[in-house]
């Protein structure tokens, strides 16, 4: 459940000038694993995620989710967008139940679950608020709650906390760790923040740009459960030093 396989996947955007956004991507992610894609902007992180989400089509290679070729988006892969992408005309509650609703799930079958999810992300008293009345962090929590409402097998997150202030980001990272710890969903998490990648993931794939490639894979074996206190441990600092030098290599190689 929730396994991901990229075999020699490439993506070329055609247009006036062709862009080879991804080149020979090989990546296997097991059930319940938390993997971060780390790299400078423009290296193809979003493209890789969009292929898996089914928003874009691969140019070459094999892309499997749970052993089946990815052909289109679906509720088994919950996507959390950077700007939340909530429906501005629906309130928090209506946004959260949108997924089960359009899939024709009976109200009785999603209502209590959705209530619990709102509580889990700390927004039970904001059910009637419109997205525009929420802060960026609260919007992102709604974005997380609405994908969890579909019980996805994997979470695909594209720099979900990138637009948040430092303190809000820390609390969101803690929230995500707690959620992941209790649900055990596979997570593919895109970020350009080294600290965030180390804190959250089991494994970091460092990418380089033009063409987008995975240049290093670094297992993070820091003990779990982790919290933002881990950010200052000696182990953490050692990982960070190593990854920073890896990323310099990536930047110098083109």
């Amino acid at each position: 459940m929730g396994t991901i396989t990229f075999e020699n996947v490439s993506k070329t955007f055609s247009g006036q000038s062709e862009v080879r956004a991804l080149d020979g991507i090989n990546l296997a992610i097991g059930e319940g694993e938390f993997v971060a894609l780390l790299g400078p902007s423009g290296c193809g992180k979003s493209t890789l995620l969009n292929l898996l989400a089914g928003f874009e089509k691969t140019t070459e290679g094999i892309l499997l989710f749970d052993g089946k070729t990815v052909t289109r988006p679906g509720p088994d892969r919950g996507v959390v967008f950077q700007e939340a992408a909530l429906f501005p005309w629906l309130n928090v509650w209506q946004n959260v139940i949108f997924g089960p609703q359009v899939q024709g799930v009976a109200r009785a079958d999603y209502e209590s679950r959705a209530r619990n999810l709102l509580k889990l992300v700390g927004l039970e008293s904001f059910a009637d608020a419109l997205p525009v009345q929420l802060s960026g962090g609260m919007r992102q929590r709604v974005g997380i709650a609405r994908v969890l409402a579909m019980s996805p097998k994997a979470l695909l997150m594209d720099e979900p906390f990138g637009a948040l202030d430092a303190q809000t980001r820390l609390s969101m990272q803690q929230l995500l760790l707690d959620v992941w710890q209790s649900l055990g969903t596979t997570v593919l998490f895109v970020t350009h923040d080294i600290d965030e990648a180390i804190l959250l993931s089991d494994r970091i794939c460092v990418m380089s740009a033009r063409p987008g490639r995975i240049i290093r894979t670094i297992p993070i074996t820091m003990p779990r459960p982790r919290s933002i206190a881990s950010l200052t441990s000696a182990e953490f600092v050692a990982y960070k030093a190593r990854i920073m030098s890896d990323m310099k290599v990536g930047a110098a190689s083109h």
């Binding site: 089914g54 928003f55 988006p73 996507v79 997924g99 609405r146």
Partner: peptide, 10 residues
């Protein structure tokens, strides 16, 4: 992304 979000939710 609004359309993508809707497709993603089925």
């Amino acid at each position: 992304n609004l359309v993508r979000a809707a497709m993603m939710m089925g």
